[in-house]
Nucleic acid binder design. Structure first.
Lengths: 342, 342
DNA sequence: GTGAAAGCGCTAACAC
DNA sequence: GTGTTAGCGCTTTCAC
């Protein structure tokens, strides 16, 4: 390669990396030679020398969780646009596996880590250890206070959007089906419901059932919540909401005629449920972009800036499951977004 | 590290890699030193020297396609179990992006590539170019004849299972909603339907509507197929089937009372549809394991063995959407698998 | 069985 | 501006 262009390897390196100015004539020769020889620089050697692999580790609980694929997609695209590559680690929802995967990624000299922790508490040690070695940003879920940079959806805003919408469409007796976990999604969504539901009905903050983030729990919780005669079921995520929808249908309850149902996340299934589910759409692309930005910042600047915690506001997606009682349920194919409401 | 254990770097390398016999006493000292220093070998340097990164590129059309997350999960776990890591490349269903991603992975010196091609025809050039550089196995979808090793589900077996099941449960007027593409899934599933449906009804092979693999097409196709008064709608994948289910419900058609509906793939949504969808479950774990095995084979043996093409038989999952007409629709939560039928 | 030394392909000092 | 040279951290001959 150096021979072919009639100059030294150093010059070749400079032309390709653009590190230092090079004469226009010789630069052209180098580029031509690279072209005709089909030369591709070896990223491994480059990484060894420059101590930077251009590789980011993405650690997530379970790729089969329906909320993650779109997030992974956006992260992959955002990072690739910066010329970085993504090493994927699926943890099977197990903090032990998570710790092992993080170690494996660190051994491979990833430049940084993007972690969606499995568990608020049990992931902390592994994350803390990793933070000491490379820039790390927590995505979507927290992992203890101020342990690392983090990017997540603002759950409080989301829940407020839901409650405001229910109030505006005439619902007065909401209830909440949530999750008992200690993670930010469970805690913040519950807190926001309790804080906001009182405006609709002083009793509403008390109508709460806590289980986990599953379809099964959604189905089971309906039976426990129904005796309180709610006119709206606010669910902590879409899985719970779809489960609730299934059980309500089974019991012959009219949604949205008798009861409105809302979810959170806007997973693909939300649009396909019958009736289509009103929910809160997380700003997935922006979450990914912000995470990539934070990583870039940590990689460029000195490693010791103050911890940043970014919260992004979600968007309400109004669908059939919360249509006002006056109107009959519209065609399931029809959806309106928050913008269109304005 | 060499200093700490009082021997040479070569010996340290030998102990840790187990390449050559080392005296037991000194081996112990090395291991102790490694332990106490928290020594982790630098995989990048190792890769540069040994010309093997232990990294596999996984290239797929779109992680948001509901069939892929479980496949990605199994691939990741199978590969990680062998000490390899997965570089993920999402192609946004675009062959141009696919080609770019493949090049980027090759530049990073992946040991091999696992590719789910975007398009039977338009992915061929990029795949062929990659095959010349590293071991490559095609997963789930083909990409022209004999271009590389491949692992996929046996679509013919799957469709036969469906038709046999429909025959056994008393259906006599099946029809088919498929896709017009040239990919193996579209072609083989259609061919298998046409070959097998004649046994139920000589007219059946002619009752075919071809569109794409989408929910929307499933909805639209129902209107075109209904005039032929079918008692079973065989769909080329689950997305089509769920769309068909939605439209049939909208039209007030009783499923499975009047018409049975079947899908293909067993995506998560299949179990959640109402009624739950009878479908063909692809052997995802085995697909991933076989792909990993093939890769291992190519990496270990000489690169020029004969091309291998592995087809794995899928499994029928019987749910409510194809229940015999005599019985009323069972509880949506109840599912039976093919094994339980035997 | 163990150590010394030569590189893997590249980049970054340092001369010129 | 450009060439020369010394490594990045490891594995692997090759001597002993």
């Amino acid at each position: 390669m150096a021979r072919a262009s009639g100059c030294s390897v150093a010059t070749v390196s400079r032309v390709l990396a653009g590190t230092r100015p090079v004469g226009p004539e010789i630069a052209r020769r180098v580029r031509e030679a690279a072209e005709s020889l089909g030369y591709r620089p070896n990223q491994v050697a480059r990484a060894l020398r420059s101590r930077s692999t251009g590789t980011i580790g993405l650690v997530l609980p379970q790729i089969t969780n329906p909320f993650f694929p779109s997030l992974v997609r956006e992260v992959e695209h955002a990072l690739h646009a910066e010329g970085r590559a993504v090493l994927l680690a699926d943890c099977d929802d197990d903090p032990t596996i998570e710790a092992a995967r993080i170690t494996a990624l660190l051994d491979r000299q990833v430049d940084a880590l993007l972690v969606i922790p499995v568990d608020e508490r049990h992931s902390r040690a592994a994350v803390a250890a990793a933070v000491a070695q490379v820039p790390l940003v927590l995505l979507d879920r927290g992992c203890g206070p101020g342990i690392a940079d983090s990017v997540a959806t603002d759950n409080t805003v989301g829940m407020t959007l839901v409650l405001d919408h229910l109030a505006a469409t005439g619902r007065r007796r909401p209830c909440f089906i949530g999750a008992a976990g200690t993670d930010s999604a469970a805690v913040e969504r519950l807190a926001a419901y309790e804080a906001g539901a009182g405006a609709l009905d002083p009793e509403a903050p008390g109508r709460v059932e806590l289980g986990d983030f599953s379809l099964e729990w959604g189905r089971a919780a309906v039976d426990r919540i129904l005796p309180s005669r709610p006119d709206a079921v606010v669910c902590a995520n879409d899985l719970i909401a779809v489960g609730a929808l299934q059980r309500l249908r089974q019991l012959g309850v009219d949604v949205p005629g008798e009861i409105a149902v809302t979810g959170f996340d806007d997973i693909p299934m939300a649009d396909l449920a019958d009736p289509a589910l009103t929910t809160v759409r997380q700003p997935v692309r922006e979450l990914a972009a912000e995470a990539a930005h934070l990583l870039g910042h940590r990689l460029a600047e000195q490693k010791d800036g103050p911890r940043r915690s970014v919260r992004l506001a979600p968007e309400l997606v109004v669908r059939a499951s919360s249509a006002p009682r006056a109107a009959s349920a519209p065609d399931p194919g029809t959806t309106r977004t928050a913008e269109e409401d304005q």
